[in-house]
Nucleic acid binder design. Structure first.
Lengths: 147, 147
DNA sequence: TATTGTTATACTCTATAACTATA
DNA sequence: TATAGTTATAGAGTATAACAATA
């Protein structure tokens, strides 16, 4: 798939593309700050949030984070040292270790989630129709043809 | 500014917030890949793009990147070692060093910019009205009341 | 005195490769 | 033999603190 030359020069499109870049930068910045308020790095916060949905094998975490499994070892090490995550054996496969949040880890993940208001605030001012349109656009940007 | 409890649980809002998170993750991933295709890290690519608009003092780069000036020294060192950036004296203030892209650096920045089609492609399928609405929403997300 | 850029240091994230224990 | 997780290693980004040159 290629973009037409016109799309690269249309002023409105260029402006929207730049705005998307700014939103991405802003979102990342706010996420890092929220993580820092909980004394977590961005990567630690992302993994803790991931595990708060469901405990996962190390390998699956690496896939979700799109990084090498060896990195996950270190990040889980640090989360475990702080008592936020624990490693459990998998009864079905003794090679596997399941990473799961502790009670304190779950509490931290919840607090972190609640503090991520950046993306939520502006949406509160949108009509339902606008939100539906936005949802459709975002889905298209992600290539989710279904829905 | 605080989000109402309702906005935190409204299913549509929650879904849109999650989609925004996905778009941000995707955008970052694609940016890193585009940088890697040019043998650059994300930070190197961002600074090179920044300088391709206008040469800047080290201190100003740090402000734009929202990082400490000491970090910029190392990143510019690596870009300079590869012949993509050069340090020039500032005639007006001998303490200042201006970082500027070389001819090859400018070419690399251009190529990098052209390869960032991710955000542009889906926009090509939107009507002008949709793009205008999206622009308004993105501006609101960034707190730009004007416009 | 204050500012600009740098150096030194320490920590985290990252990929690669080699290792272990299981399957 | 293949897979899950780990270790070892090296490079890059990050913040902090201390420093030299200049304002």
């Amino acid at each position: 798939m290629t973009t037409t030359p016109a799309a690269r020069t249309d002023p409105l499109t260029v402006e929207v593309v730049d705005l998307i870049g700014s939103v991405v930068a802003r979102y990342h910045q706010e996420y890092e700050q929220a993580a820092a308020r909980h004394a977590l790095t961005g990567a630690q916060a992302r993994i803790l949030s991931l595990l708060s949905v469901e405990p996962l094998p190390m390998r699956r975490i690496a896939r979700a984070m799109k990084c090498e499994p060896s990195n996950v070892t270190g990040i889980i090490d640090r989360l475990e040292a702080r008592g936020l995550v624990e490693r459990r054996p998998d009864p079905a496969d003794r090679r596997v270790k399941l990473a799961a949040p502790t009670r304190e880890g779950a509490r931290t993940a919840r607090s972190l989630r609640d503090s991520l208001d950046f993306a939520r605030e502006p949406l509160a001012g949108l009509s339902r129709q606008e939100r539906l349109l936005l949802r459709g656009l975002l889905r298209r940007m992600l290539g989710e043809d279904a829905g």
